[in-house]
Design a protein around this nucleic acid. Sequence first.
DNA 1: AAAGACGACAACCGCCAGACC
DNA 2: GGGTCTGGCGGTTGTCGTCTT
Length: 322
Amino acid sequence: MHGQKDLNLEKRSKGLQRCGKSCRLRWINYLRPDLKRGMFSQEEEDLIIMLHEALGNRWAQIASQLPGRTDNEIKNFWHSYLKKKLIKQGVDPSTHKPMTETQVKDEKDCSIDSTSLHIFQTNGLPNLATSARMDHLNIIDEGNVAIEDAKVNFSSKQVYDPLFLSEFQANIHPNGYHSNFPYYHLQNRIEGDSLNPINPFCGFNSMPNLTDFDQKNVMDRDHCCDSSCSSMSKNVMNEAKESSSNNSIIENGGIFAWNEENKLDSVFNFQFSGIQIEEKKPNIFQNGHQQNIDDQSSGDFSNYSMMFQELTETNHHDFQQI
DNA sequence: AAAGACGACAACCGCCAGACC
DNA sequence: GGGTCTGGCGGTTGTCGTCTT
């Protein structure tokens, strides 16, 4: 240990002796001009939790859904904050399922008392990123999965779950943006498109790559993210509202399949690359919610947060008390 | 005021895959 | 086909500032 310390001291005194690889890493994680600084917003937290539930420790993929955030940053945030937060909520951070009382007790860092735990466990309340949706997913890690295996039956989905898997297919409005589901799906439903009944089979597209951001896109990053996420949240909110009124989610068919790519990556398609078009076409989903004051970090997912809050309001009540 | 604990975060390490020769 | 290089990734470590005792 001392040797390592001495080495570090030496490095500092001489200046870090970086190889090309570490220079690259420093650029990506620290120096890149498009990096978003500052704390993570609540919306980003929620998104990370959900993405982590779906993707596991694939930080790079998670980061690709959070423009301006690096995998390293998200990873650190997870280990230093989110993980503990989930544990305190009685949620196993690795499985995203409610921990048993024993598990909670086993967690050294967990200060939750058994009474509180009992409250939400007996109520059958989910964690924010409920595990229910993933329970019904038969998705295999590397994405090479037979379509049959990838089918998801939403009919067994628990009603309280406001954000089932399709939420990740945060599609862009067809008005110039990419769209498969849920927007298009939802539109058909709302507008009663008889030619396009609710299509239970949803295609997926290649996952956007953060590295695809060019400098101009970077300049517009927040706007882009804001819009796409807003539409996403609105769509999901509508979907969830509808489902709550019907007391079920997607009962007609309730199955979706993968396209030829068959990659879990593809589920998350925020299409950040649609910036240019989006700029010219105002987002029809703007619902008048005031942007979060913290424009750097919170604005991007403001609607998403509200949706989350609204959808989980009832069932989340007990959590607030914990 | 000092020492230890803790949290945040940058940096490092090792592995892997793809490109190239 | 095999070796080397490079980039990407996830896990882990080290440092530093802040908080607590």
